[in-house]
Design a protein around this nucleic acid. Structure first.
Lengths: 362, 362
DNA sequence: TTGAACTTGTTTATCGACATGGTAAACTGA
DNA sequence: TCAGTTTACCATGTCGATAAACAAGTTCAA
């Protein structure tokens, strides 16, 4: 009588269960009753515990499938150690999610998390979020098992709370060695090197640099390499070549304006991200400065749009999707007990398009 | 002895508690013991139950604060009816989050959710997600209280499972009346009307239309209004004026190419979103077609970048942030028991920039 | 003086799963 | 045959909160 699907007793059982738990989803006890085993057995079947024989395992599994049972994960998480939820923490930017950079990272995180059986929750590191210690509370209140920290910088002092490695956290596409945190980052130094190689090769010597956020370590790396490479080409970098573009189109346009006003003889502009490069391009176009005939412009990130602006933008490709996915995987490994420190650096490459050319002769 | 902070008994208590629950966060019982009341009382204080006197309320609250107690929300959700988590469901696009359109909606959702005490979880409506009935399972397994459905269309048949309104769900920036679902949407018909008014006023009669996704109701609305307005201007719309741009830059460029090949005399291109408009602009620029001298191009969405391309893009501004926020609020109201159907339409307006001008005389 | 209505708690069952110690039954080997 | 070992499953306490039922003390009207 293993196949009792249509027996009278079966029908009675169904009616009873239905009347008792009207509307509510099936739970462990229901399954146990129907399968005529204890709840413990069902639980063990669920968790593929080897203490259950193959025969009962299959019999119980059939009942589970037939009843459409799905474990209540609140109960699961309450008694087990894990929630199987990760948080993606974003900086407190206005309308922060509408950004191709973060979007690409998040896509990588979400895809990998889903594949590994994890859900992803969104958080923003707003001032009161940190002030009320929510960054710790979300662990202690059992919302999440770990945090992926995007767009963070040296001023995010709450990160110091993670130095002791009690709560799993990983920094994505940046690194903060002062706090010894795990990280996965794109190789900003190598990327900048690729840019400088290329520009110097094209004969550029007077190069404007639109950077941003000196509190971001990778941005400082970029600046360092920029200056080193100029120096090794025996060019004396002048301070007015360098300006802050705030990572935005507007900021990029404004920085371009200031640089070109103070140093009209620069033949190339290197921007720390594509948004600022687009802003700079926009400013130049408005002023009748031709790209790349009069000035070369080069970005960083290689976002989708870079190929579809006019002229299309030369840029450093960052494997952001991969960085997000890898960070997610490493974080989950750590949650599951791995103790090694994570410090991965992903390679970048230059994508040459139309916005760059040989240095203009002036 | 309310202030027993430094008494010997107090110290002993601390030691005992500490030894018993090493490292674990404080729980309700700990607080109750320390405050010398029952767990029920602490719970009631937590939930601001008026049955507790002001005196005990304050006394217990002090203990709570001093011990740094934060309720375990798994336990809270398990015994109460709510999880206070919402899901944002996105379509199964590759790298879907790196999209300014969805980003803006999500920003609105997250900000409002945070203000109302809700967390936000990310989901993607991938084929196997739907096939395994995860869209129902996330309710039954108690992951979430409700879903905000972004970028959905008539082909998402799983939405039919929400017709009975058993599980709270709201459609954001689209509507699917066949299933009677709640929605908050931007006024695509009015937006299209604004575009057509403007183009007709500028003397354009032969207008190309790059639309996409006929399975999206709002896209069909746009097409309808496009054709109606041409007709009322006594223009016979020709089929080769209309093409599909797949909502992407590449698609927009390709559609522009096809339209201009089949109908070289069109004087304006109207794109269903800014990404396709940018693609079209890019194609025209490459072919030496001047914007707006030879052809006017107009977009839809008014994303950030629209103002920072060259020439800057005329577009219909959609209040996407507001739509996300409002949808979030309405969904939470429904979760809390409100039964009214939600069907809100938000106004749009045209933002005129440089990509449009009087129709060229040809 | 009685008792109904209010206040302000407390006791305890419950949510739904997991995990551990316990224990029949089956098996093993001398 | 019987002690010892495996195998396979069960009973139950536990996670940490909520909430309904219950209780004791107060107030107040008849």
């Amino acid at each position: 009588m293993i196949e009792g699907g249509a027996s009278p007793e079966f029908a009675v059982e169904v009616a009873q269960v239905a009347s008792k738990r009207e509307g509510k989803p099936v739970n462990l006890r229901d399954v146990a009753k129907r399968a005529k085993v204890s709840v413990a057995t069902v639980s063990m079947v669920l968790n593929e515990n080897p203490r259950i024989s193959r025969a009962t395992q299959m019999r119980v599994q059939q009942v589970i499938d037939r009843m459409g049972y799905r474990p209540n994960r609140l109960a699961q998480s309450l008694s087990s150690r894990y929630t199987r939820v990760l948080a993606v923490m974003l900086p407190a930017l206005r309308h922060g999610f509408g950004d191709a950079y973060f979007g690409e990272l998040i896509s990588g995180v979400c895809d990998r998390a889903g594949k590994l059986g994890y859900k992803v929750m969104l958080e923003q590191a707003k001032p009161d979020f940190v002030k009320s210690h929510e960054h710790i509370a979300i662990y202690e209140r059992r919302y999440i098992d770990g945090i992926l920290c995007l767009g963070c910088n040296d001023r995010h002092h709450f990160l110091a709370d993670f130095t002791d490695r009690r709560y799993p956290l990983i920094v994505v596409d940046n690194y903060l060695e002062q706090w010894g945190l795990d990280y996965v980052v794109c190789d900003y130094r190598a990327g900048t090197d690729q840019v400088m190689n290329y520009l110097l090769q094209l004969g550029h010597r007077k190069i404007g640099f639109i950077n941003a956020a000196p509190e971001v370590r990778t941005a400082r790396d970029r600046l360092e390499v920029f200056e080193q490479r100029l120096q090794s080409a025996e060019v004396q970098a002048r301070p007015e070549w360098i300006d802050d573009g705030q990572f935005t189109e507007q900021g990029g346009a404004a920085a371009a304006e200031r640089i070109l006003a103070a140093a009209p003889d620069v033949t190339a502009l290197f921007a720390g991200n594509d948004k600022m490069a687009l802003g700079a391009m926009h400013y130049c176009s408005r002023r009748g400065i031709r790209i790349p005939a009069d000035i070369s412009i080069i970005g960083f990130d290689d976002m989708q749009q870079a190929a579809f602006v006019n002229p299309s933008l030369t840029s450093v490709h960052l494997p952001l999707y991969e960085a997000g996915a890898l960070a997610c995987e490493r974080l989950i490994e750590r949650i599951r007990g791995k103790v090694d420190r994570v410090a991965e650096v992903l390679p970048t490459h230059l994508v040459v398009r139309e916005s760059t050319a040989m240095a203009a002769q002036r």
